[in-house]
Write a protein that binds this DNA or RNA. Sequence first.
DNA 1: CATTTAACCGACCCGCAAGTCGGTTCGGTT
DNA 2: AACCGAACCGACTTGCGGGTCGGTTAAATG
Lengths: 205, 205
Amino acid sequence: METTLKSRETMHRLCGKGLEIFNEKGYYNTSLDDILTQLSLSKGAFYHHFKSKEDYFISIVQNLIVQKVYALLIEPLNTEENPLPVIVESLENALEPGKKNEMAYGFMLNDFLTEFNKRNEEISGYLKDILNVWEVNLVSVLKKGKLDGYIARHVDCEGVATYIIASYLGMRSLMMDSTNRQLKYQYIQQLKQYFRSLEPQHVMA
Amino acid sequence: METTLKSRETMHRLCGKGLEIFNEKGYYNTSLDDILTQLSLSKGAFYHHFKSKEDYFISIVQNLIVQKVYALLIEPLNTEENPLPVIVESLENALEPGKKNEMAYGFMLNDFLTEFNKRNEEISGYLKDILNVWEVNLVSVLKKGKLDGYIARHVDCEGVATYIIASYLGMRSLMMDSTNRQLKYQYIQQLKQYFRSLEPQHVMA
DNA sequence: CATTTAACCGACCCGCAAGTCGGTTCGGTT
DNA sequence: AACCGAACCGACTTGCGGGTCGGTTAAATG
């Protein structure tokens, strides 16, 4: 049992540091040694726990990234309130640069999607799955918002979800280096503007 | 003189094929031999014309990509009409999969931006410059639209430009493989919806 | 203790792709 | 005809990085 704990601990450290560095420098631009050096581990240790670099990254996706996307972008949607401000808040939060040295995990989706697209079908499949789950949840909360009278009846919820996701992913390309406050502010403002156009017409009795 | 023509011709073929394959498979995932084989050229020929793979790609950016972005996204903005439908049209056109075997050049910006970000500062600088030019032109045409009464006075033109660019770039990540007609349709519809909210309030005399 | 085995070490292998370089071809000039 | 140099060839060098493998350490068990 003691050994199993040690094993889990090492794998955990590998995954955490891996996500951090892959996110910083990209998957293909990071060598295993880059990571192993920082953890004072050897090639042998690595291949004792993972069967390949690819297998390693899949672990990272399925353990860490999925979890972060759920926590930041999906679970906040579970609410009874008006979904539009809830969505804004979740995106605003997801674009927030990490609190205290954590990086903004929400950011990385677009980078990894682009990196693995045309390169590694399996991994890019897992990443698309994550996006799909997000989309399904967005659509569902939007439809609920329509029933509750927060959103106009004519609105195409699937289209709105797509547009939200596209603009969110695109922000990543724009915010690349400097965590530009100005860009984020502009984005949130325009998102709100857009959302205003989805509300039912105010009845001016 | 004849020789100079031959030289230009070869460089031109190299750049064209390079853009095509880099766009398909990504820069770092494409070896020079991949390109040279298709053109029946040798390493020697390549290094006679370019001093490195990087130098080669910079040529491609500055000759071909800049040109395409201007043609597809910037020049169409020069009009006296209402800028909003003009912008929609230019984006719709830029998202169109290439006519007759050409690829959609408009697409590639996001891919290359993501690929070179954190990898090659010089190239990513050139790509950002292109985005900046686009943004400046968008802002300028939006401001003109405001003066002409097509856009409400309260609108933040810089913010709108940022939002347009972000959503456009993000669409690339979503449309990756299948040139999904549905996605494009949804995007254009929502963009129009958003733009409607930028118009001055209709005076219901 | 003795033995076993999970966890780990690190030198080495090997393929890939950028870049080099000595040589060849060929159109143009004298 | 002799020559020059631009355009091009392709075998080779080189470095990098994923993956291998025989060996070592140390904790658990009898």
